[in-house]
């Protein structure tokens, strides 16, 4: 039986998180006007980890929010079961803020489209950047990440599984073996 293919472990993931933080620090945007938003369930964890590094370096607090995009999906009238909804939590005013949006895997771009629509219902940010661990380079919409830890060109039916310590007890990214 073929095993899942391990793409990254704790070290590699932590290195990407560091790069993300550096990229945020390097940017010409005013860091004091910056806020992070993570897409539930793992983007919010990534946002938190990156924020910790940035906060330490800059000695400031970055507002962090999380969003659940399920109510904004474009396939709600097609899918079998409506997925469980988790609470969105954006406890700050995002008008005119520079937003860094985090997710684990960028795939078709549809999740990001939903996230953007949801964010716009909370206010009008000045700018939104998209940061992801993995970019599967198979967007179906004209959306692409501003930063990705790794680009992965694989067939659409393959699944990339991201595990993060906070909820999965370990840091690991695997390419799930094909089902047949």
């Amino acid at each position: 039986m073929a095993k899942d293919f391990r793409l990254m472990g704790e070290k590699e993931i932590s290195s990407i998180i560091n790069k993300m933080a550096l990229e945020v620090l390097k940017s010409k945007e005013n860091i004091e006007n910056t806020a992070f938003i993570g897409i539930i369930k793992r983007g919010d964890i990534i946002a938190k980890r990156v924020a910790e590094i940035v906060e330490k370096r800059e000695n400031l607090k970055i507002p962090i929010g999380k969003i659940d995009i399920n109510l904004y999906r474009d396939d709600l009238s097609i899918i079998d079961y409506h997925p469980q909804v988790f609470s969105t939590d954006i406890g700050f005013d995002l008008n005119d803020k520079i937003i860094y949006l985090f997710d684990d895997v960028f795939f078709t771009g549809r999740t990001i489209r939903s996230a953007l629509n949801e964010i716009m219902d909370f206010g009008r940010p000045k700018k939104i950047y998209l940061y992801v661990l993995i970019n599967r380079v198979s967007a179906e919409l004209p959306i692409k990440p501003d930063f990705s830890g790794s680009d992965l060109s694989i067939p659409k039916n393959r699944i990339v599984n991201v595990k993060l310590k906070e909820i999965d007890s370990e840091d690991e990214i695997t390419l799930v073996k094909e089902d047949n």
Binding site: D68, N70, L71, Y72, L76, S77, H82, Q84, V85, F86, S87, T88, D89, N117, E118, D121, F122, G123
Partner: peptide, 22 residues
């Protein structure tokens, strides 16, 4: 569990989500 998440929607500046559009 879902209802607790929907309660958050009631606290938003725009209390509207597109889930049942149409």
């Amino acid at each position: 569990e879902n209802a607790f998440s929907f309660k958050e929607v009631l606290l938003r500046p725009i209390k509207k989500v597109p889930a049942l559009r149409g």
